[in-house]
Amino acid sequence: MTINLKKCTIEDLPVLQKISYETFNETFKHQNSPENMNSYLERAFNLKQLEKEILTISSQFFFAYSNNEIAGYLKINTNDAQSEKMGDESLEIERIYIKNKFQKHGIGKYLFNKALDIAVERNKQKIWLGVWDKNENAIAFYEKMGFIQTGAHSFYMGDEEQIDFIMTKTLI
């Protein structure tokens, strides 16, 4: 399987919205009410919100393609774009989402390694992310990649408060 990467631009907004809805829904719809899912999807992935994010200088999105079909995407943040105050020496992986049919094909690891490469290129000391405490597959993946839990924060799915573990990997 050939994996290709493309940095997203403002012209990619409709595709970014579609893959965001699809992958988030596939990943979390079975564990959340339809009302909370719809509320979150509309708030987080409406075109105006995604446009704001893609135009943020300290954020970047990348599409992963497998055999010329979009398989998933990565969003990273640095500096003041990070969702938590982690300092300028940190890079946040805010999103790695892969379509279900491309799960277990190495695409998540490929996107993780892209984020790691960017962190090293930018002389970051830490890479971090938030992961839902009930997402055992993702937690196991990140632990395998050398992350440890260093904190937690609240994440709101509609009107339901959930807990995300903050997981960190030291690079230096």
Rank of each mutant, 00 (worst) to 15 (best):
Q31S: 14
K169M: 08
E136I: 15
S58H: 14
P34E: 13
I118C: 05
I148P: 02
S33C: 09
F141G: 07
S66C: 15
I118Y: 02
D133Y: 12
F63Q: 05
L50S: 04
S58F: 13
S20W: 03
E11V: 03
N38A: 11
R122N: 15
E136T: 13
F62T: 02
I163C: 10
R122E: 12
M1R: 00
K109W: 03
A152S: 14
I107W: 02
T170K: 08
N77A: 13
A64G: 04
P34Y: 10
E160G: 00
L16Y: 05
Q49R: 13
H30G: 12
T168D: 05
A71Y: 09
I3A: 05
A115M: 12
K85M: 10
Q103C: 12
I57H: 11
F45D: 06
F112P: 00
E51H: 08
Y65V: 06
S33G: 09
K104V: 01
Q31I: 13
E161V: 05
Y110K: 03
Q149R: 15
M86D: 01
N38L: 12
D164F: 10
Q162H: 15
T9R: 02
G87S: 08
T2Y: 07
V131Q: 06
S20A: 15
I127Y: 03
E89I: 14
P34D: 11
V15Y: 06
A81M: 11
